[in-house]
Amino acid sequence: MSEQNGSNGALRRGADAFELKVGLAEMMKNGVIMDVVDPEQAKIAEEAGACAVMALERVPSDIRKDGGVARMSAIEMIEGIQKAVSIPVMAKVRIGHIQEARVLEAMGVDFIDESEVLTPADDEHHIAKHDYKVPFVCGARNLGEALRRVGEGAAMIRTKGEAGSGNIVEAVRHLRTVVGEMRAIQALPEEELMSTARDMGAPHSLVQYVHEHGKLPVPNFAAGGVATPADAALCRTLGAEAVFVGSGIFKSADPEKRARAVVHACTHWEDPEEVLNASRGLGSAMEGLEMETLAESERLANRGW
C-alpha cells in the first residue's frame, strides 16, 4: 500500500511501516510464543494461552540430534498451522535467505524469525528486513548484535540463548549482557557514543536511542533453553518482555500442563506464590545439556554476524 494523504495531514500507511511491525511485537508482550511442529500442537499451545506459535518442522533439540541442513519448514505444514489457530503464526528462515523470507511473506505469515537455529544461507549478511511487509525477529547475544539487527529492520529482538539445550544459562548470559551494556551506555557522556558505536559495530543513531531511553527501540524477548515456569519467570526478572519456548514444552512429560504453567509464570513472574503454584505437578522437564558437552562448532548461538 502506498502512502496517501488523509484529512488533517494524517497519512495512510501499509504494513511495511516500521511502527506496525513493532506494534505487533508490542501485542505479544507479557506472553509466551511456543514452537509447534503440527496443527495439533498448535491447538494445544493456543488452548494453553500462547500469544503466538512458531511453526517449524523439528524443534531445536531434534535439529541438534538429527544434524544435516535445517531449512525453512514445508509450506503445507505452515499452512496447516495457519488454518488451525487464530493467534499469530511465526515461521523461521535461514539467516540471509532472502527468498525463503519472500515465500513466507507471500503466505501471509505474521512474523518471520531469521534464526540461527536453521543452517545459515549466508555466512556474512543478514536479510535487509525493512524491505518487507512482514515483521522480523532476530536473535542477539549482545547489544551490538541486537542493534545491527534493528538497523537492518528487525522489529523484535530475542536472546539467542542456546536453542534445544534445555539449559537457561546462555539466555541468562545474553540477557544480562544486553541489559548491562544498555545501562553502561546510558551513563556515558554524549561525546563517547560515536566511538562506542564504532567499537560495538552498531549504528550511531541506535546507540543514541539507547543512551536516551535505556532500552532497545523494539521489544526485547528471551529465547533459548527455557524449560520450566521458573526459567520463564527468571527471563522476565532479567528484563525480557516476553518469552519463547522451543523444545521445552513438547519434549516434556506433560506438554499441555507445562504450556499452561509457563504462560502463568510469564504473567505472574513477580509473585513467587504464583510461580510456585504453576510449578506443581508438571512431571519431568525436557532433558538438558551441559554447555561444556557442546563443542563451539555445535553451538547454534555462534551463527549470525
Binding site: S7, A10, L11, R13, G108
Partner: peptide, 24 residues
Amino acid sequence: TQTDSFVAPADPGGAAGLGGLECV
C-alpha cells in the same frame, strides 16, 4: 494477517471531534 495491518486517519466529522485521528 499482519501483512494487511495499516495506519489510517479517522474519517472527518463525528460528534467526538476525532476526525483525522491517526488509527493504528
